[in-house]
Design a protein around this nucleic acid. Sequence first.
DNA 1: TCGAATTCCATACCGGGTTTGATTTTGTAC
DNA 2: GTACAAAATCAAACCCGGTATGGAATTCGA
Lengths: 202, 202
Amino acid sequence: MAGLRERKKEQTRQRIAAVALRLFTERGFDAVTVSEIAEAAEVAKATLFTYFPSKESLALEGVGQDDLAGIVARRPTGQSPLQALRAHYQAFMAGQMAAMDRDAVIARMRLIFGSPALSGAANTLLYQQRRTLASVLAEEHGATRAALMAAQIAATLLTLQESFFHLLVSGASPAKAVRALAEDTEFAFDLLEHGIEHVKGQ
Amino acid sequence: MAGLRERKKEQTRQRIAAVALRLFTERGFDAVTVSEIAEAAEVAKATLFTYFPSKESLALEGVGQDDLAGIVARRPTGQSPLQALRAHYQAFMAGQMAAMDRDAVIARMRLIFGSPALSGAANTLLYQQRRTLASVLAEEHGATRAALMAAQIAATLLTLQESFFHLLVSGASPAKAVRALAEDTEFAFDLLEHGIEHVKGQ
DNA sequence: TCGAATTCCATACCGGGTTTGATTTTGTAC
DNA sequence: GTACAAAATCAAACCCGGTATGGAATTCGA
């Protein structure tokens, strides 16, 4: 178990991802070619594509792994899907967020939102989640209504990330941006729960 | 004015678009190459790309032109943005929708939602609209809140289209699908106005 | 150590899209 | 009508992301 083969594969995979991320952050996503990455990582281009299905996936390693459907499916009885999601993101920002490597996270966001191709790919990832979330919600509501709810939720979460990023690039300190994100998240869930016409607040 | 030059250009543009649409519907988006389209339309590939920026744009001619921001900006005083959008889509479905070439619309939707690349491109179009809508809404609400609202609205409209399409491909008659769309649209705006927790209806 | 499976590689290829530089077509001024 | 500048078109080469091929190297299990 965990033979030499497996270990080397994992090693190679990580080397490729690390090299790619370095080149991307140095020169920007579009200014780096896949062949360059392969060369710098000392593998053939064809080999690189056995590890990663696309150039975008190189930059999105370990991103957008939120399991919206799982959070909803595993919620305690009596809790609404929205309450479960709200609780999850509150906990996330109080805990994990504070422990992360801020600079790395910010660099990654800068990379993603700075390239239309990457933002689009990130969007597509969220789109998959939206569908699985909709299928979970469909058990309680109809398919169409579940799809509408899931779409609103997914769009909201993506927008929160974007706002966070815009705050950062406009010069706010990370600490301040995180505080604003927490506040915006609260508002966002209020909006989802009570509707646009009923959240005139502030 | 409207010299020969302009007329010929418009003519060429439409010929390219028509040829492309025919080939796409005949054989599917992915099974048609841009070179084939250019050849069939009797232009050089480079010329084709002076008329259309991408292969996707060939299939999306005249699609996704809803001017969400304009509808909101031009609404009568006293009307909320959501009311204006709701009224617009109600009027659209009662009027324009009934007058359209149903088969053509359905074929186009089948084309778009049948290809991941095209759905993605359509998504991107809506994303642009979302930003301009947000900038209009930002005059009344803050930038972040406007972005959240715009995101929910845009995601909702796209989802309505998808649901409509799924009904069609699952065999519903166009008339029935249109009726369901009208009903879903009402629900969707209720959802936007009053929130997920307050629209338990039905 | 031997053979089977797996991985890797170089290379050629495909399709979308751009660049180049020459050629044709159109508008306009005479 | 002619001449000339601007604009449009063209063929061809090129770039890049991604795939297919067929062979060489590596690892595994016995």
